[in-house]
Structure formats: structure tokens, C-alpha cells
Amino acid sequence: MPKLKLPSPGALYVGIICALLYLPIALLIVFSFNDAASLTFPFKGFTLQWYQQLGQSSELLASLRNSLVIAFGSSVLATILGTMGAIAIVRFNLPGRGIFLAVSTMPLVIPYVILGVALLILLNQAGIPLSAPAAGFAHVIISIPYAILIISSRLVGFPDNLEEAAMDLGASYWEALLKVTIPIVSPALLASFLLCFTISFDEYSIASFLVGTDTTLPVYMFSQLRFPTRLPMIIAMAAIIMTVTMLAMLISEWLRRAGQHTSPTGGGIASRKAKA
């Protein structure tokens, strides 16, 4: 075990930002046990009733499930499309890439309400029923700019001839992409996936027009704001989501460390040494 020492300024800064990011969440968790429907100080007393209510609200749980499915599907698809687009615009100096970059980042700029209404009209004209997949495919559109910008900002600056080197060794172009380029950009792929997931998971305006009866969590919540008595239940659910995610992360971190400990030659350390 290393000796305890004062944190470096960098670590301190990360600590402060983390504390700021988690402060509101900690408050939400505390207030999920508050015996009052209003989210205001002072704390009135301890209760578990919101969690009981949550267990009985099948609509809310169904909407959480829809949101998870939509967010997962759309972020995977957006990351795949974004990778293809990013490689194309960074690696090839051919006409059309400027326009592609401009168009693919434009969804960032359109108010989602309007994109939602326009998509609603188009889908209805095309006879496509409103559903979770419809919202998922629409979420891909608003996620693509994030995917492309993140992935291309990592691709830029890598030597262009990486794929060529692999091809010299006998790989086809597509094999070279899969085996050389993709691993190099994998941290960006992860970042892109996480960001797209977040965006879709929390998106309200487009989803409210497109999901039909497959309600997502944000749609449910916005509609529910009309009834303040049901807010604590939603907070209770957020508290559960947070706790479960944090636990899962702690477990995976613990597993990673355990793995490193038992097999010091395992992937983690070896690759890091190679990089460093």
C-alpha cells in the first residue's frame, strides 16, 4: 500500500468538481426519504412510502424500461454511424466531406420541439406507427453530431498511413479499419456511447411527439409535473438508479483491481505499460 499523501492539485480539483456534480444527487437521495411531497427544506421526517408507491407504479417502471432500451439502441447505432462518418471525413480528402460535416452537426442546432413535430408529420405520412423504435431512430439523429465530433477529434492527428501499414501486412482495407483504426479510437467510441446514451435517456421534446404509447421516463415525468404529490416517487426512482449505477461501477472497479492483483501480466497492466 502506498503511503497516504496530500492529493495533487489536479486530484483536488477533480474531487471538488465531483463533489459539485454529486451534491444535487445526494440531496435528491436524502429527500427521497422525506415525509413531505414538497421538495423543500426543512426535512420533515423519515418515510419509505415513496419507494412503496414506486413499486406499485407499473407505468413508471415501464417507462424506465423503454428509456433504457431506446437509449441503448440509439447510442449504439449513433456511435456506429458516427464512426463511419468520422473516418470518412478525417481520412479522405474528397469533395462532399465539408457538406457532410456541416449537415451531420446541424441537428445540434434545431430546437427539438420543431424537429419532433416535423418528424411526427413525416412518420404519419409514411404510415410508420409511433413507437419506441421511432423515437429511438430519431434520437440517433440528435446523437450523431456528438458521436462524429468526439470520434473525429480523436482520429485527427493519427498518422494517415496506419491502415496502409496494416494493408502492407496483408490485411484488406476493411480488416485494417476493424483491427487497427477501431482499437485506436476505442476510448472515443466509449465516450461517444456514454454521451449519446445520456442524451437519449434524458431527451423529452422529440420523444414526447414520437413514442406514442411507449412512454419514456422524461415524457412520463414532464406529464407528471401536473401532480406534485407524485414527484417524490420519481425522485425515489432516480435515487435507485443512482445507487444501482454507483454500485455496479464500484463492483466493476473492484473486479478490475482483483483481476490485476491475481494476474499481474493480465491485459490491463500490460497494455498500460506498453502505452506509457
Binding site: 417502471l61 441503448f72 476510448p187 444501482v244 455496479a248 500490460a270 497494455s271
Partner: peptide, 30 residues
């Protein structure tokens, strides 16, 4: 390689979440 592990933990996290939901939903059918 590290990222692969992280991917795996994210997937397991999502599986966990969906299991949680699957476990809860039937109880609460209205």
C-alpha cells in the same frame, strides 16, 4: 483493452437494470 472491460461493466450494468425492472414490473400490473 481496458476499455473492453469498461464496456463489459456498462453492459452488465444495463443487464442489471433490466433485471431489476423485469423483477418489479409483473408485481405491479394494474
Amino acid at each position: 483493452m481496458k476499455t473492453r472491460k469498461l464496456w463489459m461493466s456498462i453492459c452488465s450494468l444495463l443487464v442489471l437494470a433490466s433485471m431489476f425492472l423485469a423483477a418489479c414490473a409483473p408485481v405491479a400490473t394494474p
